[in-house]
Write a protein that binds this DNA or RNA. Structure first.
Lengths: 213, 213
DNA sequence: TTAAATTTGAAACTTAAATTTGAATTATGG
DNA sequence: CCATAATTCAAATTTAAGTTTCAAATTTAA
């Protein structure tokens, strides 16, 4: 069993395993991934999984925890006694955060793919982590939408509109093979600014249109 | 090897296998699904997979083909010499088709989940089928968006706006565990009309707003 | 009705992957 | 520097799943 001593070499083995496992799990999914391929890529022995994580599933859980723990949460903040920034600014911050996240160099490319796998086929025990990390985003976008639609907007409309905004971001972030094939020019692009600008403009136009009705 | 005679009982075995395999592949994904569970649910012997489909992967391919072949393609048509219906009507037809599809009784619930798996982790050899079935939808929504945005809209804007509309539909159709958890009230709903109405209203407001800028 | 072909069933076989084992190596604290 | 604990390694074991086999049952066509 892993020891409290945690010397540098052992920590390195553990880190390499998570790194390699993240890539392979993202490529193949939990079940199609083999521990051999993981340990080969990590350059460690097969027994290291058992030693550091007990088994393949605990390794997977550790990988998910690692990926989620690195998710940036960078809301547009404001002082408690000051008025909040205009919803348009918060909307842009929301979209920017979600889209930049999956391109950021501090966040390996496999994180988004891995989470996409989880969304299609959630594994148990991770619901709690997801809730903790995703609920704040949901509340944030709902607040933005509520501010733009105005105080009289029914809750149902707020929820649906929040989903409409989020779904556009998700299509970029958890881009699938299908999207890639349909619109290669959009997903190859180096810079995300046009995508961010579009989603913000599209969503703002929609929300303002809904309000004026 | 399957015979040309295709008597009723054999056809029934084949049908039950595809049905059961569809459910199990959708629940667990291609790799996590076991042939034993499939044959158990289908109430047939393990050898039936070998006999009718050669192996697990051919069975999977048959299931995907089956699911895709049932995808309804019901564009809003018009006579060749008549003007096309207004884009607002075509937009509603597009959204309705995609959303109703996944609830339609003729199309079991597992179809959408199965295709969601394919989107996250495509298996080879099916690209062609996808292209054949999905490209028409892409062209259709792009035409709608182009008509609403007007002849001067840049191609880039048209593509992005088409993605924005489609992404909203996909969120409903390929609803994930996450969406279910975040908005149970929306996904439990019996009737899709409010969802359709929202997506149409949101998208129309957005497109008109973009045009007027 | 019968012979040939098709389909199904139960069990055995094969393969591949996960896990365990125990020895060898490396690090740590006294 | 030694003793002890932690870690790594290569090989063996176990497990689980897909596939094959062949005999029995059923269907088809003459």
């Amino acid at each position: 069993m892993p020891n409290v001593k945690n010397n540098a070499a052992a920590q390195e083995t553990r880190r390499r395993l998570i790194e390699a496992a993240g890539e392979i799990f993202a490529e193949r999914g939990l079940h199609a991934a083999t521990t051999k391929e993981i340990t080969d890529r990590a350059g460690v022995n097969a027994a290291a999984i058992n030693y550091h994580f007990r088994d393949k599933f605990e390794l997977y859980a550790a990988v998910i925890r690692h990926a989620l723990s690195q998710a940036p949460v960078a809301f547009l903040t404001h002082a408690a006694d000051a008025p909040p920034p205009p919803p348009e600014d918060r909307l842009r911050a929301y979209v920017t955060n979600i889209l930049q996240d999956f391109r950021s160099s501090s966040r390996p490319a496999w994180h988004a793919t891995l989470i996409a796998h989880e969304l299609v086929q959630p594994t148990a025990a991770l619901q709690a982590v997801m809730e903790e990390l995703i609920r704040p985003w949901v509340d944030y976008i709902e607040g933005i939408v509520r501010d733009i639609l105005g105080p009289d907007a029914p809750r149902d409309q707020i929820i649906r509109a929040a989903m409409s905004v989020s779904s556009q971001c998700f299509l970029y972030r958890y881009k699938s093979q299908l999207t890639y094939w349909l619109y290669p020019q959009l997903l190859h692009e180096e810079n995300l600014q046009p995508g961010i600008d579009h989603i913000v403009a599209f969503s703002l136009a929609a929300l303002r249109g809904l309000r004026s009705q």
